[in-house]
Structures are given as structure tokens and as C-alpha cells.
Nucleic acid binder design. Structure first.
Lengths: 204, 204
DNA sequence: AAGTTTATTGACTCGTCAATCAACAAAAAC
DNA sequence: GTTTTTGTTGATTGACGAGTCAATAAACTT
């Protein structure tokens, strides 16, 4: 039966299966055998293609980030004007895709993994930088030099809202999350309009 | 050597050791033997007092939440007036304690655990409800009927800021996190003032 | 003093799992 | 048409780990 050119197909199947299994179990405590079985092959073959379980996890994480990136790009392509761009980023961040069990499991566990696996941390940083840059593109025309601060706050708010929606029992309310984020934006932008230029908000 | 009344002492030592080990390893992938060794006893004794590893995790989570609760209460005791109360909650949420390696490991992994362990989810809900109620106490005098929405947003923002500070490389910037949260508050309250709702003054 | 409760551990059971290997099959290259 | 490359797995290795248990010992009870 051995057809050639199996490698990409097998790898893709394993990545998908890895994400599904992590979502099913809710932790990184999944066995290579489970993953391989779901992907329709022996565990030996999984090792053959990925070398180690950790490599599988990292490939899965890359895949999740790629999906998210594609979703953002897709939404941005239809946007015109800064406000529309911001809305697109929010829509993508709170898309139904990101609330599927697999995606949730992946994100939560990748945060844990990022604590100790340098490559995972690197990937997470890539995601955050991209999100930040997308937000900035929409914010700069609206907020000028306050854009940086707003982007940081909004980025954190997005993560926090996601976390809460995901951990609460019952179905997540994506619209409410988006509304809260938009509300943050509106009030910050109104504030800038009233105050005129930037004013140093000194903490402490 | 068997002195009596060891149970609470042993349990406390185990809880502490559990948290330390989770922080050290960065995941829930710690063995009972590791924990017991750090707590200065045999793994059999750990099982004797806690029955299972899961019980140890839950006890550790309860302990973390208790510590956090105590910190908030302590800060609130010194506060006078709504603004001061809000500030206290923020200070406690971003206290140095919460950024120690053990606490970080605990929080991240408890989020993961909350996906599947009902008791963990319950505990997390208790934390969120308490945070929300503390925020509301400070917000209601300032924001009136908008307090609920603000508390939800601020709660998510706190979690999100914590997540970001914790996952970025380098030392966390607690002051920046507090500043961002205060900035959120200010702009939301100013918005309310303009809209003619409750009387809200900006505080910085 | 005999019996009960509490504290404590080393040794053991039973299972699991990541990773390796030998071996087999088919296509491609020579 | 033999050799090499690619695909594939069952069986095995080697390690580790959660939870149990029997045994030992000190303290409290009666």
C-alpha cells in the first residue's frame, strides 16, 4: 500500500489529531498513541515523522497560529478604513473558530507550555506582535501617539475577555466580548478627543 | 518520633510543596514523590493525608485563592472611599506575590485544570465573583448603573494584563499593568461624566 | 498492661508510555 | 533486476509513577 509523498499528509493528519486530542483531554497529557490512533496510523509512524511528542505540540501550535493569522488576514482584506480594520481584528479574535473545544484547549495549554518551552514562547510572541501591529494600523489614524498605549491595553483586554468567556460555564457570548472591547475603544477615543493631546497618566 | 497532631502541619507542607513544584516544572506534570520529597516526607505519607494527587492540586488551588483573598482584604482594610478601594484591588491583583514563579505556575495551570475539573472551575468562579463584587463596591458610587459593565470589562482586563506580563520574557512591569487598568477606569468614568450619568471624577 | 489510634516508611504492584528496532512492502533509481 | 529510498507496523525496551500494604513505633485510652 505504501504510496509515496505521504509525509505532508501524515504530518497534517497528526497535527490535526494532536489539537483534537488536546481539546478532548483538556491538557497536554495526551499520549502519542492516542494521537496516532486518531490520525489513523501507528504510534511508531508518528515518531518517525515528528521525532518526539514535543515536536508534535509545537507543530500543532504553529498550525493554530497560522489558522488565526489567516482568519485575521481574511477579515482585514474586506475592511476599509481604520475603524473597520479594528472591527475585523476583533471579529477574528472572537470568531467561532477560536471557541471550538480544540482551539480552547490549544490556547490554554500553549500558554502553559510557553512558560518553559522557548519555542512555544517565541511563537506566542509572534502572535502578540502581529496582533499589536494590526491594532496599531487601525489605531494610529484615530489616536495618534496614544495608539501604542491603546493597542497594549486592547490586546490584553482581548486575551482577558477570551479567557473569561472560555472558562465560564455555558456557551460563550462572543458578541458580548466584542461589545466590551468596542466599548473600551470608544471611551478611549472619546477621551482623547476631549482631552485633546496626550496627557501623562501617572500611575502610582 | 511520631508526635501527634501532625496532620495539619504535614498537609500545609504538602500544599506549599505542591505549589513550589508546579512553579518549578511549569506544569501539572509533577510527581507525588517530588512533592513529598520537597515537603520532607515519603510519598506514601502524602497519599495517606491527601488520598490522591488531584486532591493535592485542589488543596493547592484553594490555598492560592485564600492567599489572594487575604491580600485583597488587607489592602481594602486601609482604603477609604471608592477610588481608594479600586486602587487597592488593583494593587493586590498585581502584587509581587502574584508574580512569583510559584503563583504564576499555579494560576496558569489552574486555568487549564478548570477546563475539566469541576471543583477547580468552581473555585475559579468563586475568585471571579469575589473580584467582581469588590470592583462593584468601588464602581457603583462612581459609575452608577454602568458599574456592572465596567466591572466585567475591568475584570477581564486584569486577567489579560496579568497573562501578558507573566508570559513576556524579562521581569514583569507591574506598575505598567496598574497604569493601564487605571487608564481604562479613567476614560470610562470620564465618558460617564460627559454622558451626564453619575458624577465621576478622574483619579490618577 | 493491653488495646487503640496516629504517624511513618520501604517495598511492591500494576499500569502506562515515549522511544527504538527489526522487519516487511512498494515504489524509484540505476 | 538489483539496490536504494520511502512508508509502515508489531513487538520490545526501559523507565517512571500512582496508589496500596504490611510493618514498625510512638503516643493516648482504659
Amino acid at each position: 500500500m505504501p504510496k509515496l509523498g505521504m509525509e505532508p499528509i501524515r504530518k497534517a493528519a497528526l497535527v490535526k489529531a494532536t489539537i483534537v486530542e488536546i481539546g478532548r483531554v483538556g491538557s497536554l497529557d495526551v499520549t502519542v498513541s492516542q494521537i496516532a490512533k486518531r490520525a489513523g496510523m501507528s504510534s511508531a509512524l508518528a515518531h518517525h515523522y515528528f521525532g518526539s511528542k514535543e515536536e508534535m505540540f509545537l507543530a500543532a501550535m504553529r498550525h493554530i497560529l497560522t489558522l488565526y493569522g489567516a482568519e485575521v488576514r481574511g477579515a482585514l482584506a474586506l475592511a476599509d478604513g481604520p475603524e473597520s480594520r479594528l472591527r475585523s481584528v476583533l471579529a477574528a479574535s472572537f470568531s467561532a473558530t477560536n471557541f471550538r473545544r480544540e482551539a480552547v484547549g490549544a490556547w490554554l495549554n500553549f500558554w502553559v507550555l510557553a512558560q518553559t518551552a522557548p519555542e512555544a514562547r517565541r511563537l506566542l510572541k509572534v502572535y502578540q506582535r502581529r496582533l499589536r501591529s494590526n491594532l496599531l494600523a487601525g489605531l494610529r489614524p484615530l489616536a495618534g501617539d496614544r495608539a501604542e498605549a491603546l493597542a497594549d491595553g486592547l490586546g490584553a483586554l482581548i486575551d482577558g475577555l477570551y479567557l473569561r468567556e472560555v472558562l465560564k460555564s455555558g456557551p460563550p457570548d462572543r458578541a458580548a466580548a466584542i461589545a466590551t472591547a468596542l466599548n473600551y475603544l470608544n471611551s478611549q477615543l472619546e477621551g482623547a478627543a476631549h482631552a485633546g493631546a496626550a496627557e501623562g497618566q501617572s500611575f502610582r
